[in-house]
Design a protein around this nucleic acid. Structure first.
Lengths: 220, 220
DNA sequence: ATCTTTTTGTGATAAAAATCACATTAAAAT
DNA sequence: ATTTTAATGTGATTTTTATCACAAAAAGAT
């Protein structure tokens, strides 16, 4: 039974894993699996079962001792938590290679999020419609975003103009940003920004790989 | 002074930040900045100065009291640490929208990494050459990768076939993988895999936005 | 019913990461 | 040369995250 003073504090580390859980359980539910235990979720997600149980515990007592979790029920709970019922309209800034690929893809298998408009500096692109997504000029950003009440954006604008582009987004009422330019930009504390840093990921991957290959000095 | 032996373990959290530092300092060096203090790096990277100093300290005493850091020198050190001198050849699996965008982009501003070959199931694509990158059939994977001695790969193969594709990569000698399919796959402990999960990022962003959780960054 | 088995949820503990705060060192000023 | 100022590097501490390990609860077996 859920306690009355639930909804306390959810650790950031737990929040990061929520989409992983949701996807995993959704897939199970769709396959017709009715019942699952933390140990099995662990095998599917590569997250230790103790961590899974601890994470789940932040949202109430979702399972039953000696039984496990009712898949449908837990999916329902996570569905609620992540607001998957509400449609998220996303604005895209920067219609280059990556931007175009994102539009073409447009979260096809995620029915609750969609890029609904895009902005591009290059005048040759603006005015066009790609895969049903209208490309506007950056000058139109503020009016379009406020009119359509969008507050989530993805920026694929190159580093040199990243800060500039993010400033405009913030000024247009955007509060959540995913930035493909890895250079850190300054935003007000009311705005949340995350970075997708491909080069950085590769560098750290290789950094660890280099550390693992030779006679390891991994003591403690 | 720190002994060579002590320069052993670098925390994962620090390793993740290394590319951010490197990029920031490189940019400063290129702009002609000769000297910088942790406080200023903090403003540029949004990472607290104490964290920066602690991170740097894992690689020796890079700075001087009452002065700060010699930009050129620190860049040199990070350059060495991250092996930026060594060229990283990357294999790409899955030449769809995202795959094509990655090839077209091909880490243009990062002169030490490059997609040098790609693999695609669809027979219509294989045999072609895109932006100088040859597209092979997946059947050729093992021979091409061992011949070219590549051990880093990016997979943009959709979730349904993700595990299958990663199995082939591992079998072909790949040890570092960046996977654009967010569903967790199983790999041997000798292989390092990271995930780029756009949908997940958006979901957590919006989750926090709903919670109006304060993303406090203290610069000091 | 009763017993055995299973698996949760969570106190307790450990490990990792972030942060504080300042002695120490070096630079800059006088 | 001496004093003042500045900023590092790091012990100490706090906070966050992960893990252990098991009593309690529920399921399933007999």
């Amino acid at each position: 039974m859920k306690s009355e003073q639930e909804e306390q504090y959810v650790p950031k580390a737990t929040a990061k894993r929520l989409p992983v859980y949701y996807r995993c359980l959704k897939k199970l539910a769709d396959t017709g699996v009715k019942r699952i235990k933390s140990q099995e979720i662990s095998e599917l997600t590569q997250i230790p079962s103790a961590t899974i149980r601890r994470d789940f515990s932040h949202f109430g007592e979702l399972g039953r001792s000696g039984y496990g979790y009712e898949v449908d029920y837990v999916v329902e709970v996570f569905h609620e938590i992540l607001n998957v019922n509400k449609i998220i309209n996303i604005a895209l800034v920067g219609v280059g290679n990556i931007g175009k690929a994102l539009i073409a893809n447009n979260f096809r298998r995620d029915d609750n999020m969609k890029i609904t408009c895009a902005f591009e500096k290059n005048e040759e692109e603006s005015g066009k419609i790609l895969s049903g997504v209208p490309i506007y000029s950056v000058a139109q950003m503020k009016s379009v975003l406020s009119r359509e009440n969008i507050h989530v954006a993805i920026s694929t604008v190159p580093s040199e103009h990243s800060q500039e582009s993010i400033n405009m987004l913030v000024d247009s009422g955007i509060t959540s940003i995913l930035n493909f330019a890895p250079g850190r930009v300054v935003v007000p504390s009311t705005v949340d920004i995350r970075y997708i840093d491909l080069t950085g990921e590769i560098l750290t991957l290789v950094y660890y790989d280099g550390k693992l290959l030779p006679p390891i000095i991994k003591n403690k």
